[in-house]
Nucleic acid binder design. Structure first.
Length: 650
RNA sequence: GCCGAUGUAGCUCAGGGGUAGAGCGCUUCCUUGGUAAGGAAGAGGUCAUGGGUUCAAUUCCCAUCAUUGGCUCCA
């Protein structure tokens, strides 16, 4: 007798070993049709694998990550089978499921390539194989047999993977004529896969190592129903419409010029306005938190970064030094602001009573990003950090850290960024040589971050090996419209620079002590933040931030004079107002200005002129009736106030 | 930097060995209107740049530059 406990704690008893599929069938036919995988005592299994002992189980359908994982992982095998059939002699790397679909890394050998014109062929082959409803059969063999098998097959990549596995049994999965090294789980058969789309193809280094061979990575996605694929493709289209590069062009926020250089954004008037408003907002908050603005030059002597240790680490990958013609002094375009700020700290002696000292600067920095890495405003070669450096006593570190977290949460709340991940980046425990500074300091700062995060009740993940070379950090990560993750805000603890720049303060004991430094940037960079904000809002910025708040649309040219009167009135109330006095019908003006995402549209014609009113339309929400100018001005002013004053200093 | 793709009017894109097209935008004219596209005419392109093949290249080939999807990197 085998007892099977379901997630609701109900128990089912079976005479003999039973598969997950049969349990599902036993519960209901419709469940059996939908179930894709099963968790047995915390381990994910194939549905057909027999359960022989009392177990706790959970059945996974498409809605579960586990269900999708099994589905896409099985699809990766199906694609590999298709690729083997279409490209004989192909060698296989790895083929996992990912957040949206799956990929397989393959070595095509003989210099063959796959390009997007080949996709239909691959899709057709996959569908053909899927229709054969070949079972995914699991088998367990010894490591030696596995090595023999893949030696015969000539798959050197699989051999390398097997050699790295521990001795013991190794599982293989076979469907049709295709056998792959795999932990599973998989679908019962290929017939579950009804809709197939190959998405793109890319180069990917074997095992992520740029010194090793570059394989061809083929990305795809599959679904149990054709309709789901169609919906997914619509979603991808929608996401593309939110792309900041597209909206940035549409709304004339920023541009790039080949003649200026790649990765060097040019902020157009409207984008500059938006950015300036964000900067002023942060400045206001920082002032309340005791920050002082400083200004430093865009270049500095190379020695500055030799001292900081950055030159050794990044020097050869940066823009190369520029030198003075007569003396041959070497300068670097500054890749970060910290050394300049350290020198500001050093301009005078500090007492322990004066700390913490907080220097802030919207500092523009230049980094030589690899050409293939550039991407819209999110990855550029010249950008402005909303940088600040806090110099504090070691006993103030945790508190200061928490205050920075407060500033970040004010910013994120004001801009309605709820969907972020906090990532604590610590040292790689296996390779401490990548880092500089003493073990003791690293431990102190790693603990300070972890404690601060816990005390602030932040949801966070810990990533080992992601720390900066000089210290651990706390990063705030958000996703863009296409699901790519970007780092926005960051807080970093640094014992290293104070050491290297010999920063000091005089303690209560009248002795010299070393301060601790915190680097922090709530936005991260203005460029990246604005990019993510564009995608987050689809270009519909909050009223306080948007470049143009109101547009006045006269019904005909007869009312242009009245419209101008309204325009002057609103502009005098500090409301950013435009007028659309083109010789167009009102429907056309409404459409055009709706598409410019201007929050309020005011329609003025005969009626409004007579009654000294305006007819109000809210962007995306239609006609709101009429009101007089004062009422409307109050409406706008109050809305802006509510948006910008909704925070407190703790 | 590496692998793949792309580059045609201000924007979005079609085309194709015989020196170019649409829609939107722009200019002018008609129209003066009531809540998401009124009508007409016109201007605008060395088809990214440089080579090569050809009687002829924007089209085919090569290189460069830029953009783009990934990989690696990200102080």
């Amino acid at each position: 007798m085998i007892k099977i406990t379901l997630p609701d704690n109900s128990v089912r008893e079976y005479e003999e070993a039973i598969s997950g599929y049969d349990i599902a069938k036993n519960i209901s036919q419709s469940l059996a049709k939908e179930v894709l995988a099963i968790t047995v005592n915390g381990e994910i299994w194939d549905l057909q694998r027999l359960i022989t002992t009392d177990s706790k189980i959970k059945l996974h359908k498409w809605d579960d990550e586990e269900g999708k994982h099994a589905f896409w992982h099985s699809s990766a095998h199906l694609m590999a089978e298709a690729l083997e059939a279409l490209y004989p002699g192909i060698k296989l790397g790895i083929g996992p499921s990912i957040e949206n679909g799956f990929y397989y890394d393959v070595d095509l050998v003989d210099g063959r390539v796959i390009s997007d014109t080949d996709f239909p062929k691959i899709e057709a082959k996959m569908k053909e194989l899927a229709q054969q409803k070949n079972e995914y059969r699991r088998s367990e063999i010894s490591k030696k047999d596995a090595l023999d098998f893949f030696t015969k097959k000539g798959d050197e990549y699989k051999l390398e993977l097997i050699n790295d596995l521990e001795d013991g049994t190794i599982t293989l999965y076979k469907q049709g004529n295709f056998t792959d090294l795999c932990r599973g789980p998989h679908l019962p058969d290929t017939g579950y896969i009804k809709a197939v789309k190959i998405l793109n193809v890319a180069g990917a280094y074997w095992r992520g190592d740029e010194k090793r061979k570059q394989l061809t990575r083929v990305y795809g996605i599959t679904f149990p129903k054709q309709k789901m694929l169609e919906e997914h493709l619509v979603l991808l289209e929608e996401a593309k419409k939110r792309d900041h590069r597209r909206i940035g062009k549409e709304l004339e926020l920023f541009t790039f010029s080949q003649r200026v250089g790649q990765g060097l954004p040019l902020w157009l008037p409207k984008g500059a306005q938006l950015r300036e408003r964000l900067e002023n907002f942060l400045k206001k908050i920082q002032k309340l938190y005791g920050y002082q603005q400083v200004i430093t030059p865009h270049i500095g002597l190379k020695e500055l970064w030799v001292t900081s240790g950055h030159y050794e680490k990044y020097g050869k990958d940066s823009f190369q030094p520029i030198s003075t013609p007569a003396e041959g002094e070497e300068f670097l375009l500054k890749p970060m602001n910290c050394p300049h700020h350290c020198e500001i700290y050093k301009h005078k002696q500090h007492s322990y009573k004066d700390l913490p000292v907080r220097y802030a600067e919207f500092g523009t920095v230049y980094r030589y990003e690899q050409s293939g890495e550039l991407h819209g405003l999110t990855r550029v070669r010249g950008f402005t950090q909303d940088d600040a450096h806090i110099f504090c006593r070691p006993d103030q570190l945790k508190d200061e850290f928490k205050k920075v977290m407060d500033i970040i949460s004010i910013i994120f709340n004001a801009l309605d960024f709820q969907n972020f991940t906090a990532q604590v980046s610590l040292r790689d425990p296996d390779d401490k040589t990548k880092y500089i500074g003493s073990d003791e300091n690293w431990e102190k700062s790693e603990n300070a971050i972890l404690e601060a995060v816990k005390e602030k009740n932040l949801n966070y993940v810990v990533e080992y090996g992601e720390a900066a070379f000089y210290g651990p950090k706390l990063d705030f990560m958000v996703k863009d419209a296409l699901g790519r993750q970007w780092q926005l805000g960051t807080i970093q603890v640094d014992y290293n620079l104070p050491e290297r720049f010999e920063l000091e303060y005089i303690g209560a004991d009248n002795q010299k002590h070393r301060p601790v430094m915190i680097h922090r940037a709530p936005f991260g960079s203005m460029e990246r933040f604005v990019a993510v904000l564009i995608e987050h809002t689809a270009g519909k910025f909050p009223l306080w931030l948007t470049p143009d708040q109101v547009v006045i649309l006269p019904i005909s040219e007869k009312y242009n004079d009245y419209a101008k009167k309204v325009l002057n009135f609103l502009n005098n109330c500090d409301i950013r107002t435009l007028i659309d006095d083109r010789n167009e019908k009102i429907g056309k003006k409404i459409r055009d200005n709706e598409m410019k995402r201007i929050p309020y549209l005011l329609i003025v014609g005969e009626k409004e002129f007579e009654n000294e009113t305006v007819s109000v339309r809210v962007q995306g929400d239609g006609d709101k009736g009429s009101m007089n100018m004062n009422e409307f001005a109050d409406l706008i002013t109050n809305e802006v106030k509510a948006q910008t004053e909704n925070y407190k200093i703790n």
